[in-house]
Write a protein that binds this DNA or RNA. Structure first.
Length: 563
RNA sequence: GUCCCCGUAGUUCAAUCGGAUAGAACACAAGCUUGCGGAGCUUGCGAUAGAGGUUCGAAUCCUCUCGGGGACACCA
């Protein structure tokens, strides 16, 4: 808060000065602070001189110089350079600002957000694509909650649709008994169906018939389907537990079976839905291709279910914001959905956001279930754990750990590595799936963050922090300044991560903080520092620990006790 | 064919919604242990696909070319 207040009063100060000097009237919003690219320029800067130079018919350099001459404060010095106005905090002031960062409590905003994420398909192993949705979605959920939103997380399980008609049909054709089939078997049957349907297009028709039967409540179809759901959910629960993810509600597409009719009636009544080639569609004119509500055989589509889902969520939670963490391949679908919601008059499309994550690709080419080029989460984690163990064996510090403790640590390191490798990328980018990068346990990686945090913790465990009195002299070296300057960025990073739906901003920040701390740690003693600066170094260690801990917590990266 | 996203060191990614000398990591090369955890630290090498335009200022915005990915009604 103190930083906020400081920036606000500095803005007001600038506004007054600009008015006095150049008779320029500006809004506070026009003044923006940034962090100079080169730390030697200062700790904060503004480009306001460029913005008003044209208005007042002076050069930016001159404007900046005049501003710098005019402002004088005890807590920072002001200098102009190349048209920028640079502020450099005194050590004491910077130190006090950083204390402010440690107050994590936010006021409740009275706003509610529904976050739709994970949403794996039943009867298939948990794929790497849904892993992305799960990890990013959970981080966004955490971030919104931290910022003071009331959050509702929903796992919109893919448990309905023609694909299960295909699966049931294939099970029947091959005379299989659902009781004997594993998730892997089910996936194989699905793949097999597609292969055979290529040569025999009649099979698609059979699949549609079986889905229609399922929708109409046919006993046999429902029983096979229920069995698939059960098997899948059991496996998903193991996965979520391993990933340390908990989603508030699990309501699959099938949940909305009886809620679509109402929506269809409303769409027809408002003349938004119309008939075309025997099907019921929503026409968007030239803006977009049409979306389908009912197929010509009368069965529903996932568009219908998504629409019913929105209706349900409005009725139940009436959120101020809907966030969908779903792959970029569904961009058109989402646009159609948001537009239709607006046409129905339920909500404005601005109240919806599609976090369209990019797709995973392999170095060898596209991923493809049919060609067997998929990556199963289980395999990735096992390999990551193997590597973590390898490094751990060389470590001195874990020698006195029990086997159980080691196993637990290895698991957390592997999960942290996999999650961080995903979170550090901007969601919109496709990720080239590279084993070496994902399971990298050094450098810009999850374990690097975990390690840095534990090292800070280890130092803190060896001493007692004494409060630093207001009178004590603070004198900082450049490594200490770097850490403190990074720390005071935390609030802004959170704000931007929330506003832009980018946990990647926080991941990047956490890495930079760890890096700055490590540089500080390696060049200056903390516990054996001279007594007059020992306390300030302990404070820096403690603050880093606290902020790093919170960052990893928000990102969903687990922290081992030792590693 | 139409629409959307992307193109940054050898490789994988950053760059605070137009700011100062484009940052990291991996890989490669050279160093760091008498101090708290070496999964660490320091140094070096090296990039905005191409051509125009907009302006004080462009990786970022506009146009075109080339290259990659995705989506386009009975899959989800």
């Amino acid at each position: 808060m103190m930083k906020h207040m400081f920036e606000k009063s500095l803005k007001e100060n600038l506004r007054t000065v600009l008015c006095d000097l150049f008779n320029a009237k500006i809004n506070l919003e026009e003044i923006e602070f940034e962090i100079p690219t080169d730390p030697s320029h200062g700790d904060l800067c503004t480009n306001i001189a460029f913005r008003i130079a044209g208005k007042v018919k002076k050069s930016p350099v001159e404007v900046a110089e005049k501003i710098a001459e005019r402002i004088s404060e005890d807590s920072f010095e002001v200098k102009s350079l190349n048209g920028f106005v640079n502020f450099r905090f005194t050590d004491k002031f910077l130190f006090n600002l950083s204390k402010d960062t440690l107050a994590f409590e936010r006021e409740r905003l009275g706003k509610r957000v529904v976050v739709d994420y994970s949403a794996p398909n039943i009867a298939k192993p948990f794929g790497i694509g849904h892993l992305r949705s799960t990890i990013i979605g959970q981080a966004i959920y955490n971030l919104y909650q931290f910022e003071g939103w009331e959050t509702v997380g929903v796992n919109h399980l893919g448990d309905w649709g023609t694909q299960y008609g295909k699966l049931i049909f294939q099970i029947k054709r091959k005379n299989k008994n659902i009781k004997d089939l594993s998730i892997g078997d089910l996936e194989n049957l699905y793949v097999e169906f597609h292969k055979e349907a290529k040569d025999d297009p009649g099979l698609e028709e059979g699949a549609r018939i079986w889905f229609k039967k399922l929708e109409d409540g046919d006993g046999e179809a429902v029983s096979i389907w229920e069995s698939c759901v059960k098997k899948s959910i059991k496996q998903f629960e193991e996965t979520y537990s391993l990933l340390d993810v908990e989603i508030d509600y699990c309501m699959g597409e099938s949940f909305y079976q009886d809620k679509m009719k109402m929506v269809l009636e409303e769409a027809k009544g408002k003349e938004i839905a119309k008939e075309s080639k025997g099907a019921l569609i929503v026409d968007f004119g030239n803006e977009m291709p049409p979306a389908m509500l009912l197929k010509s055989d009368g069965s529903t589509t996932y568009f219908t279910r998504d629409l019913a889902t929105v209706r349900y969520r409005i009725d139940r939670w009436n959120p101020d914001l809907f966030i969908y963490e779903i792959g970029a391949d569904q961009k058109l679908h989402m646009r159609q959905l948001f537009k239709t919601v607006e046409m129905l008059g339920w909500k404005k499309s601005e109240e919806f956001f599609h976090v369209a994550h990019g797709m995973y690709r392999l170095k060898e080419g596209k991923m493809s279930t049919r060609k067997g080029r998929t990556i199963h989460l289980e395999y990735v984690l096992n390999e990551a754990m193997r590597r973590a163990e390898e490094i751990m064996m060389q470590s001195e510090t874990v020698k006195d750990m029990t086997e159980k403790q080691k196993k637990e640590a290895i698991k957390k390191i592997a999960v942290g590595a996999v999650k961080y490798a995903d979170l550090k990328n901007h969601y919109s980018r496709d990720i080239v799936f590279d084993w070496e990068k994902v399971m990298n346990l050094r450098g810009d990686s999850g374990p690097y963050l975990q390690y840095s945090l534990l090292r800070a913790r280890s130092v803190l465990n060896k001493c007692k922090q004494e409060p630093i009195s207001e009178e004590s002299t603070i004198k900082l070296n450049s490594e200490e300044r770097a850490v403190l300057k990074k720390l005071i960025e935390f609030d802004g990073v959170i704000e931007s991560a929330v506003r832009n739906f980018t946990p990647s901003s926080l991941a990047g920040f956490a890495f930079e903080l760890a890096k700055d701390f490590n540089a500080f740690y390696s060049s200056h003693p903390i516990l054996k520092a001279p007594s007059e600066i020992k306390n300030q170094r302990i404070f820096i260690t403690e603050a880093t620990h606290k902020v790093l801990n919170k960052s990893l917590d928000l990102l969903g990266i687990p922290i081992p006790e030792r590693m």
